[in-house]
Amino acid sequence: MNKIFSVDITGKHNFLFVGEAGSGKSEVAINFARHLVEMDDKPVHFFDMDMTKPLFRSRDVMREIESLGIIFHHQEQFYDAPTLVGGVARLLKDEGCYVVMDIGGNDIGASAIGGFAPKVNNDYTDVYYVLNSYRPWSDNLDHIDGTLSAILRISHIKLEKVKMISNPNIGLTTSADEVIEGNKRMAEMIGLYKDIEFLCVKEELYEQVRNDTKIPVFPIHLFLTYEWNKV
Rank of each mutant, 00 (worst) to 15 (best):
I190E: 07
H45V: 00
N31P: 09
V85Y: 04
H156Q: 12
S175P: 10
P43T: 03
F72I: 07
R34I: 01
L91H: 06
S149K: 14
I30T: 08
L159Q: 06
P43D: 07
V179H: 08
V130S: 12
I180L: 05
D195W: 01
Q208G: 02
V217H: 01
E203M: 11
G69H: 06
E66S: 10
L159S: 10
T174R: 13
M164V: 13
N106W: 02
A117E: 10
I157C: 01
P118E: 12
T83A: 15
G105P: 12
F116M: 07
D145Q: 13
N14S: 14
R63Y: 05
S67F: 01
D145C: 05
I9D: 10
K184G: 03
P216R: 04
G191E: 11
S23V: 05
I157S: 02
V217C: 05
S149M: 10
I4E: 13
V61R: 15
N183C: 08
G182I: 08
C97E: 07
I215C: 05
K93Q: 15
S67Q: 06
M164A: 15
I190P: 07
F47E: 08
F15Y: 15
N14C: 10
R185D: 04
E188N: 13
F47L: 08
I9V: 12
M1Q: 05
L92R: 07
S67E: 09
A89Q: 11
L224M: 14
E64A: 13
S155Q: 03
E38K: 15
V217Q: 02
F198M: 08
G19S: 13
S133I: 02
R135S: 12
T225N: 13
Y124G: 00
V85E: 10
G191A: 07
V209P: 06
S6M: 04
Y129I: 01
R135T: 11
